[in-house]
Nucleic acid binder design. Structure first.
Lengths: 164, 164
DNA sequence: TGACTTTTGTTGCAAGTGCAACGATATCAG
DNA sequence: CTGATATCGTTGCACTTGCAACAAAAGTCA
């Protein structure tokens, strides 16, 4: 009967995990039920839509997925014809991955509802809330950045105006 | 070349997922490396420390884990001697689960560092930030609450002062 | 009482995950 | 040129997850 006053529901890591998972699962209904994509495949597709033809390594470093997960996601996407794999002419190790026409078409279909869902979330926040949320999330990331035991942040997830 | 200006790194669901996972993984070093607990087991133990002797169903409804996951977590915890399972005398279906002395001792050891890590995160925020974060998370949850396609919120995760 | 429904916890199974090891290619030192 | 080292993508494997099906116990209602 020592530590009984600790409330899991008030524990920040837990609360973040619950909220994040709730939102992610709801969002996945859009790209999973609609297009049969897993979260990893969704992230890869979205990344490709913006960053063009890139390697597995590049994707891995940008969307917070480990290498095997990216590799398998790309494999499945290629099987589905949504993505094309070419080996780089200058470096035989590298793979150049890009969206196919079908992949682009699919993304054109599922990106709008995904963005709409984000808007629905953002609409519940005031503009002050949105600014505060950005600031708070960045502050929390900074704590992790300073912690050598924490996994480093992906390159693209660091804001451009990352004033030290 | 249609939708190319969508930045995953600015997409709220993705940002929440990345931050949450980063924090969760760091936190898991405390209860995993130190005590061999998975996240599910950690949540079950913590819940038991506060809510005493409860059923699988009860845990399932409180800590955002599905029934099979709770069942298996409890099974492993029992094997490790951290938890005790008794069948209810009044209802043979029900299981009464409670921390063993060893479980309580273990929790006494790993709860302080976990709380300390949360404090480290909270210390990076101003008191205004903390208030804002509570408000923002609750607003986002409310959006999900209003969405029939979203998974409902666990009972304990709804603030007591949940003014409609 | 006796069939029907509901609830509780467990199990089966296919799919996904995380980590380490691997082969293949490229790079570099001597 | 050659051996050592590093990088890239894949694969193996043990483990976890999520969903649905399940048996057992309780509740329901004629």
């Amino acid at each position: 009967m020592t530590i009984c006053d600790f409330r899991l529901a008030a524990f920040l890591p837990y609360r973040l995990a619950v909220l994040s998972e709730r939102i992610s699962r709801r969002l996945s209904r859009i790209y999973e039920a609609e297009a049969g994509l897993s979260m990893a495949e969704w992230r890869v597709m979205v990344h490709l839509s913006r960053c063009g033809a890139v390697s597995v390594r590049e994707i891995h470093g940008c969307v917070n997925l480990d290498k095997p997960r990216v590799s398998r996601a790309v494999g499945r996407l290629e099987e589905s014809g949504l993505v094309e794999k070419t080996s780089s002419p200058t470096d035989q190790r590298l793979l150049v991955i890009s969206l196919s026409a079908a992949g682009r078409a699919l993304l054109d279909r599922i990106l709008p509802p995904a963005i709409a869902y984000e808007s629905r979330l953002l609409a519940a926040l005031s503009s002050e809330d949105r600014v505060a949320l950005d600031r708070i999330m960045e502050k929390l990331h900074r704590v992790m950045d300073a912690d050598p035991e924490a996994r480093p942040r992906s390159r693209l997830d660091i804001p451009r105006d990352a004033a030290e």
